[in-house]
């Protein structure tokens, strides 16, 4: 499971969803695996406005990953500044900056392979096995 996915996950228990402390889920006893994928610059730019940056910072810090900067990057930060800015067709020639590479690495390539995801509201633990988190609830919690 990608760290980006944690940006869109919360506790599956209905009563938790309205409690702010249910988001984000907190990784525990997690082993991480980096699975390399192609960097897609337009995708990264487009996903930026959807990122819950403060919550992602909490997750990366809980996982012991290097700190994310305090504020999210801008679209411009993701591109290497063009030396001669007036080149036509620059869209296709844009080069991913180090910031983009770092963001791609943490959001799309860093995955939770094994471990648990814990709800900050009710404490329920969801297991992650072979990279797949399982949100099925036991009967008494449905």
């Amino acid at each position: 499971m990608k760290l980006l996915t944690l940006n869109f996950l919360t506790c599956a228990i209905k009563t938790c969803k309205s409690a702010p402390s249910s988001f984000p889920l907190h990784p525990r006893d997690a082993s991480l695996e980096v699975i390399e994928t192609d960097l897609n610059l337009p995708f990264l730019k487009n996903i930026l406005p959807r990122l819950m940056w403060d919550e992602l910072r909490v997750i990366t810090s809980e996982l012991g990953l290097p700190d994310l900067p305090p504020t999210p990057p801008t679209r411009e930060d993701l591109v290497v500044a063009a030396e001669d800015a007036a080149v036509e067709g620059e869209e296709s020639e844009e080069e991913a900056s180090q910031t983009a590479k770092d963001l791609h690495r943490v959001l799309l390539e860093t995955t939770v392979k094994e471990g648990k995801l814990v709800c900050g509201n009710c404490g329920h633990e969801y297991k992650v096995l072979e990279g797949v988190p399982n949100f099925l609830l036991p009967g008494h919690l449905v």
Binding site: T37, E130, V132, P133, F135
Partner: peptide, 28 residues
């Protein structure tokens, strides 16, 4: 189905989880 999710998770850039439609693990 965990077995189907394991097949689904190969498709980039997306991601797949095991969950029930009645109790989806997503913020409203």
């Amino acid at each position: 189905s965990t077995n189907l999710v394991k097949i689904a998770k190969q498709h980039q850039p997306h991601d797949s989880v095991v969950a029930d439609v009645m109790n989806l693990p997503h913020p409203k």
